[in-house]
Structure formats: structure tokens, C-alpha cells
């Protein structure tokens, strides 16, 4: 009984924000003390389809930035983590990887804004990509140091004694063995970039309008209906990825 109640309470709490965003995304005119918007409409969603709408552009921009960051952080992290995991100073290297998080990405961005301006990397997509890589890449490194354990090293050595050169071992043993981990890392690095606001708005100086920047702009304009729509757009790709990721988890276990 208690367990069932607990279950529904948690399910309700988890689903509530999505319900609220969905309702707002179809609503207009929400005056106190009404519980629901007075007007139900597709207008908000149509904003996405109109050709000049910058919301659709923000969506595409965010998708490409995040996909790029996820690819780079996963690929580079995978390789760097190997050298760090087997290095005698493993722990010291790893501490460095945690620093951008410990110092808070926004604060780091604040201290670096000057250099980005000087290098012509402020207010444009390459600059935002580089800035996000500064937090996503260390994440990739941290993620994969657990993968490069004694067992993986033993497997690599075994492949060598069976006659595999480094390239063969990498392509035939390490990469396939890492498949699941690579996918999970890609997923999480994608989210880091997809969710990122503070660093992006400081380095992009408001000119690189990713979806999070857009949401904040709508909130600032007190346009809760557009804000809800943009929020839903932010939540949908991760939810889709989560679904894919869960599938992988089921397959391997």
C-alpha cells in the first residue's frame, strides 16, 4: 500500500513538469486565479514552422553544437583517458579534469571572457564550441578513466600476444568493447552542452542563441507560453536519447 503510494507520488512529481510545459505550450492568457490558460491554441507551435522564426534556427543551432561537442568530447576523452588511466600520476591528472566543475563553469567563463574577446572567439559559434569543450572534454576524460582498468589492459595485452598490432587491437578489441560506454558518454556529453547556459551566454555574449539562451530570453520577456514551448524542445531530445540509451542497457545486460 505504502509502496504503491510512494510509486505514484514519485511518478506524479516526475511527470508534473512535463505536463505543465505541455499545457502552457498549447495555451495563451493565464490570468490569476484560473488554473488553466483561458485559450487553447496551436499558435505557439506554429512559431516553430514559420520560416523566419529564430526558434527553429535555435533548435538546429543547439542540435549541431551539442552533437559536435558530444562527438569531440567522447572521441578525445576516450583516448586521453587511456593515457591518464595508465599514468603513474593518474590521480593528479584526474584532479585537473574536475577543476572546471569545482570552479563552476560560469565563473571560469567570466575569467576567460577577455581571452575569448582577444582571440575573436566571443560572440560566435566556434567560440561557444571551444568554450563548451573546456567543460565537456574533461567530463569525457573522467568518464573513461573507469573504463581503462586492469582488465581492459590485460585484454589489450592478450590481443598483442595473439599477434595483434596496436591498430588491430584498437579496432578489433578496444573499440568494440567500449561501444556501450562510448554511447553513454556521447549521451551525457551531449546533455552537458545541450543544457549549458551561463558559459554559453558569457562567451557567446548573447549573440549565439542556443535554445537555453532562447528560453531565458522568453522568460525575460514574460512570455511563459513560448518559454514553455522552448523548454519542451529542450527536454525532448534528451528524453529520446534516454530511450535509446535504455535500450542499449537492456541489450548488454
Amino acid at each position: 500500500m505504502l509502496k504503491t503510494m510512494l510509486k505514484y507520488t514519485f511518478a506524479g512529481a516526475v511527470l508534473f513538469p512535463f505536463a505543465l510545459l505541455l499545457v502552457f505550450s498549447f495555451g495563451q492568457n493565464w490570468r490569476f486565479p484560473a488554473l488553466f490558460p483561458a485559450l487553447w491554441t496551436m499558435d505557439n507551435w506554429q512559431l516553430l514552422l514559420t520560416s523566419q522564426s529564430d526558434l527553429a534556427q535555435s533548435l538546429l543551432r543547439s542540435l549541431s553544437i551539442s552533437a559536435g561537442i558530444a562527438t569531440a568530447a567522447t572521441g578525445l576523452g576516450f583516448i586521453t583517458a587511456k593515457h591518464i588511466a595508465y599514468h603513474p600520476w593518474r590521480q593528479q591528472w584526474l584532479t585537473l579534469a574536475y577543476l572546471p566543475y569545482i570552479f563552476a563553469p560560469v565563473i571560469l567563463a567570466a575569467t576567460l571572457q577577455f581571452f575569448f574577446l582577444r582571440l575573436g572567439l566571443a560572440g560566435n559559434v566556434p567560440g561557444v564550441l571551444f568554450a563548451q569543450l573546456l567543460i565537456a572534454y574533461p567530463f569525457g576524460v573522467i568518464f573513461f578513466t573507469g573504463f581503462w582498468n586492469d582488465r581492459m589492459r590485460a585484454m589489450e595485452q592478450l590481443s598483442a600476444t595473439l599477434g595483434g598490432n596496436k591498430r588491430q587491437t584498437f579496432l578489433r578489441v578496444l573499440l568494440p568493447a567500449a561501444q556501450g560506454a562510448l554511447l553513454v558518454c556521447f549521451f551525457q556529453a551531449f546533455l552537458i552542452s545541450w543544457f549549458e547556459y551561463g558559459l554559453t551566454t558569457l562567451i557567446g555574449i548573447g549573440k549565439v542563441q542556443t535554445l537555453t539562451v532562447k528560453v531565458f530570453q522568453y522568460i525575460g520577456e514574460a512570455n511563459i507560453f513560448h518559454a514553455a514551448l522552448a523548454s519542451l524542445l529542450l527536454a525532448l531530445p534528451p528524453a529520446g536519447l534516454l530511450w535509446v540509451n535504455k535500450q542499449v542497457l537492456f541489450k548488454t545486460s
Partner: peptide
């Protein structure tokens, strides 16, 4: 299903959570 549901909030960025909390 519950284990899947538990991962759902992780798909919401901080800004969206803040927005929802404000509306509540």
C-alpha cells in the same frame, strides 16, 4: 517503468526546472 521514470528529470535543464518552479 519506475526506473525509467527516475531518469526523466535528468532530461530537464536547470533553467527549465527553475521556470517550472517559478510557475508553481
Amino acid at each position: 517503468g519506475l526506473s525509467w521514470l527516475m531518469y526523466l528529470p535528468l532530461t530537464l535543464p536547470a533553467m527549465v526546472v527553475a521556470f517550472v518552479v517559478f510557475q508553481m
